[in-house]
Computed example of a mutant assay.
Amino acid sequence: MANRILVVEDNDLNRKLFCDVLRANGHEVEPVADGELVLNGARAFAPDLIIMDIQLPHVSGLDLIEALKQDPALHDVPVLAVTAYAGKGDEERIRAAGAADYLAKPVSIGPFMAAVRRLLPAPASAGGA
């Protein structure tokens, strides 16, 4: 069964790239461009992983991560934060908000997929005892 990944990214090119790469690796992907739609979208999609842009219009990705971590239905879903603004102290603030991992843009595909694999639940082993 494919892992379900919610991609929160307001930049059209980045969102398409992330989604295309994830789909090519066998994942089911739900793109979200507007941060105000994230919580309801995540509840409806029930993702195994959320990829979260930090710089979004209308709402901060940090605020969204904190809201996700306070939602009983979503608090266990790991969040991979992705941001173009990687300044001093940003990684600490992002992790303190509840992100499981962090990547600075521009994101290379190799490190991106390595982070995705680290955060996804291990596949259930086939067969029985």
Rank of each mutant, 00 (worst) to 15 (best):
R4N: 03
R4A: 00
I5W: 02
L6P: 09
V7E: 01
V7L: 05
E9A: 09
D12S: 15
L13K: 08
N14A: 06
N14M: 03
R15W: 05
K16P: 03
L17I: 15
D20K: 12
L22M: 14
L22Q: 14
R23P: 00
R23G: 01
R23A: 10
A24R: 12
A24S: 11
G26P: 02
E28W: 12
E30N: 09
P31A: 14
P31R: 11
G35H: 00
G35R: 00
G35A: 04
L37V: 08
L37A: 06
V38T: 03
N40H: 02
G41Y: 05
G41L: 12
G41N: 11
A42I: 07
R43L: 05
R43M: 11
F45H: 07
F45L: 04
F45Q: 07
A46W: 06
P47G: 04
D48S: 02
D48F: 07
L49C: 13
I50D: 08
I50P: 05
D53L: 00
I54H: 02
I54Q: 03
Q55G: 11
L56T: 14
L56S: 07
P57E: 01
V59I: 07
G61P: 04
G61R: 01
L62V: 09
L64W: 07
L64M: 10
E66V: 12
E66F: 02
A67P: 10
L68Y: 01
K69H: 00
Q70G: 15
D71Y: 02
D71M: 09
P72S: 03
P72G: 06
A73S: 11
A73F: 08
A73G: 08
L74C: 07
V77A: 04
V77N: 01
P78G: 00
P78C: 00
V79T: 08
V79N: 08
L80E: 01
A81M: 01
A81C: 03
V82D: 11
A84M: 13
Y85W: 02
Y85K: 13
Y85H: 15
Y85M: 07
Y85V: 15
A86N: 02
G87C: 03
K88M: 05
G89S: 04
G89L: 09
E92D: 13
R93M: 03
I94A: 02
I94N: 09
R95L: 13
A96E: 10
A97V: 08
G98H: 06
G98P: 08
A99E: 13
A99M: 13
A100Y: 05
A100P: 07
A100G: 09
Y102N: 04
L103A: 10
A104D: 00
A104N: 00
K105N: 04
K105R: 07
P106L: 00
S108A: 02
I109G: 08
G110S: 15
G110P: 10
P111G: 12
P111Q: 11
P111C: 13
P111K: 12
P111R: 11
F112Q: 05
M113Q: 11
A114K: 09
A114Y: 05
V116E: 15
V116Y: 14
V116S: 14
V116I: 10
R118G: 09
L120Y: 04
L120H: 00
P123F: 12
P123Y: 14
P123E: 13
A124R: 15
A124N: 13
S125D: 10
S125H: 06
G127R: 15
G127Y: 09
A129H: 14
